[in-house]
């Protein structure tokens, strides 16, 4: 009998009513900076938020299928725009930061680390985030095209599924060099791993990262909190944190 009541207790304890915690869907490349934004926001507002990390494409699919997210912090403009057009947003997506592209290597020193080193024997594989889905990958291809290197090194390119996997290819030395986001290189997890140089930002189209406030019904308990977080994302305080992590 006692076991039964314990079992029943566990069962009902597990079936909590849907939490009114605000859930922020976060693109993988902003996950590190979001941790700090989260701390800052929770301190300021006293509200707890939860962060769900995924690739922008996957999160978009999930949002379209009705995932209970409140704000979507994407790695580019395309995906939130897509959600907005399908009627899932409370308002138009807004750019919260501009990303910075870097060339990164485990073993090649900063002085030698230029796009020219990519054509040499020293570099056998170059890791690039999949340009089809990752904005930093798209930017990397633009840089290579602008430098007229694309044809000569095309055979060396390997594509990471996300910016994080591309980082793994580079830091494990599987690829001698690769392109990535400054925010990843500067994160606590990756700090000091290898060498990097910032790519001239005139060589690629600005990497605009946008967020969108997702639609809530008027009586939703999460509406006010979500709006507050969305506002916070564009505040001076948040801007300072973004800058610290290499965003503009």
């Amino acid at each position: 009998m006692r076991w039964l009541s314990l079992l029943l207790f566990l069962f009902f304890a597990g079936c909590d009513k849907p939490s009114d915690k605000i859930i922020i869907a976060t693109a993988a490349n902003v996950q590190y900076v979001m941790k700090e934004i989260q701390q800052e926001f929770e301190k300021e507002s006293g509200k707890k938020i939860q962060i769900v990390v995924g690739s922008s494409g996957k999160l978009t699919t999930q949002i379209r299928e009705g995932a209970p997210f409140d704000v979507f912090v994407s790695a580019d403009v395309k995906y939130p725009q897509e959600i907005f057009e399908k009627g899932g947003g409370a308002e138009k997506p807004k750019v919260y930061a501009l990303g910075t592209l870097v060339l990164w290597s485990k073993d090649i020193a900063e002085n030698d680390l230029t796009t020219d080193v990519l054509t040499t024997e020293k570099v056998k594989k170059i890791a690039v985030p999949n340009p089809k889905v990752a904005p930093y990958g798209e930017a990397a291809i633009q840089v290579l095209a602008a430098k007229n290197l694309l044809k000569t090194i095309e055979k060396k390119l390997v594509y990471g599924e996300s910016i994080a996997q591309t980082a793994q290819y580079i830091t494990s030395g599987s690829a001698e060099a690769g392109f990535n986001a400054l925010s990843i290189v500067l994160s606590d997890e990756m700090k000091g791993k290898g060498h990097y140089v910032i790519i001239d930002s005139t060589l690629y189209k600005p990497i605009q990262q946008a967020a969108i406030l997702l639609k809530h019904s008027d009586d939703s308990p999460k509406k006010a909190g979500s709006e507050a977080f969305y506002q916070f994302l564009y505040s001076q305080k948040a801007k300072a944190i973004f800058r610290k992590y290499g965003y503009k």
Partner: peptide
């Protein structure tokens, strides 16, 4: 394959990964 392939067309981009990519690209 996703972990060690590097998604190179004609070399390591197999069908299951191609499906994943297309879904990711909506």
């Amino acid at each position: 394959v996703l972990m060690i392939g590097g998604n190179i067309p004609g070399v390591t981009k197999v069908a299951s990964v191609a499906i994943y990519n297309e879904v990711e690209a909506l």
